[in-house]
Nucleic acid binder design. Sequence first.
DNA 1: CTTGGAATGTCAACAAGGCTGACTTAATGT
DNA 2: ACATTAAGTCAGCCTTGTTGACATTCCAAG
Lengths: 164, 164
Amino acid sequence: MAESTGEQLLFLTDEQLRQGIEAMFFAYRGFTADPDRILDEMAYGRAHHRAIHFINCAPGTTVNNLLNILGVTKQSLNRVLRRLIEDGLVESKVGRMDKRERHLFLTEEGKALESRLSDAQRARMRAAYRKAGPEAVAGFRQVLEAMMDPDMRRNYHALRETKT
Amino acid sequence: MAESTGEQLLFLTDEQLRQGIEAMFFAYRGFTADPDRILDEMAYGRAHHRAIHFINCAPGTTVNNLLNILGVTKQSLNRVLRRLIEDGLVESKVGRMDKRERHLFLTEEGKALESRLSDAQRARMRAAYRKAGPEAVAGFRQVLEAMMDPDMRRNYHALRETKT
DNA sequence: CTTGGAATGTCAACAAGGCTGACTTAATGT
DNA sequence: ACATTAAGTCAGCCTTGTTGACATTCCAAG
């Protein structure tokens, strides 16, 4: 029913849209601020965080797979991955079926860092959700999803379907 | 009234929060994708976009002011600003009251680029808003605001009050 | 079987854009 | 007169994106 009236009620001035744009900018900064502080301690960056996050939620994923999700070049990811492997946070296993592939897993140490980062980020998200209330949260998710590129939306949904 | 029932109804599992985190990640990518393409054409980056955006919506702002909003060092901003001035997109005028200050303005050419970037970004925002409906938009804005750091929230509100 | 091409991953080098630190210049305020 | 503030500059570092060249592995067509 929200949708049925939606089209008519939605008079969007450029000013309102600009507010949305700025809100997105400042909110994203808040969103990454807590993990960034933790990562700084051990001289990692956001790229390491992203890799750890997605390896954690899809253990055994291949490098190529991760590439598609993260949307960077394989060379860029490789640098990050190499350091995570050297530091013993990530393990890379040669594929049994296809020996060209490497399957990625977090070590215990890797999982520990993932938890620290995740907890920090979730805490802020939880606080924001509580402050805004459940209806706001539903709206938040709807708008975010509508804002994604179709390709990325596919990745986003794929992540929660393929709980292998 | 949403808030009154909010606290009780909000059972947030870690999985739900992780979905929110990922949605934020993918949505932000979509959010910047269109301007990024335009910026690429003329070998500018997001840093230039941010500078142009905030100079446009607070014309005559000082360098120091911009520094606080953007949250970068003056050396970093200066590199970006220098090129925008060289390229004739931004004009820097010595302050009349305080001659130490430089006040920043977009030139006609600067405004033209700002419009292109802004139009692209607004188009996506508008499409997402339409798709999600007005109630969702309200919720979206509430959650984003709750997610900002308090300092940044101040900046965010200051921007729409001081329409000098 | 072999050989050429596709897929996968690695190494090297470069650029953008963050950062720190040291310093200058000019204007202001005390 | 002197300390402070705003702005700019230079040098150098790091992360993280990019391309290009290359090695390895697999598979399929000749």
